[in-house]
Design a protein around this nucleic acid. Structure first.
Lengths: 114, 114
DNA sequence: TTTGCTACTTTGTATTACATGGTACTGTTT
DNA sequence: AAACAGTACCATGTAATACAAAGTAGCAAA
């Protein structure tokens, strides 16, 4: 029962939401995504993001296209599909509801709203 | 990739926080906890909460005492230890930081603060 | 005694994040 | 040209968690 472990557990399930959200604004390839999420202090690593992107693609929420790079191997640029946009809208609601619930239960209901 | 599944994943890791938080205000037994969390629209079931309570107890964050019931079997009333309170304080910070990060990444940073 | 309710417990399963190691393409250095 | 370094993608195995499901046990009323 250490804090790092609990943090990791808390991150579970929100990555999908974050990735879809980031990609809905701009297409990006995996390394770019990792950089953006890391900048936002949401730890992610390769071993996490590649399987996740593949899963989202297999479920029809993402597509990708290959693009040559000016140095190094070609990149897979991912973008959100229409289905992905719908799912993202649902996730947004879900996230908002969950934050509200947690804040209510933990007694920080008013925070950020006064 | 269905919404219910993603919701379940989003809940991961926050239960510890919610339970510690609820118990820090009033001691309670498992069924009471389930009721409170369900009222707050945070689904929990027996199979989830009993092992979790035991884990928190084994890690020294919770203690319990038996109390006879006026009908039915005796109840285990759980309460938070000093160690648990410290951990709770950390979780509170962690949760707040994560919500801030997610909102920043998904572009809902201002929401609830206007 | 049987039935029903409450409360606690245990076992097995699905899902996820991550660590780790591996493949492949490009350009640079020797 | 050969070796190397850097970038990018991919695959496998592990740990942790939530949950379903089935089980145990106490108490009380019919």
């Amino acid at each position: 029962m250490n804090l790092e472990n609990t943090k990791a557990q808390m991150r579970k399930g929100i990555l999908e939401y974050c990735i879809l959200s980031v990609l809905s604004k701009n297409e990006a390839y995996a390394s770019e995504l990792i950089q953006k999420l890391t900048e936002a202090e949401l730890l992610v690593v390769e071993g996490t993001i590649y399987p996740l992107l593949t899963r989202l693609k297999n479920d029809g929420l993402l597509t990708y296209r290959w693009e040559e790079s000016t140095g190094g191997p070609p990149r897979k640029y991912y973008m959100v599909t229409t289905l992905g946009l719908n799912f993202l809208a649902e996730l947004k609601k879900t996230w908002a509801a969950m934050v509200a619930s947690v804040n209510r239960v933990t007694g920080s209901e008013g925070e950020g709203r006064r």
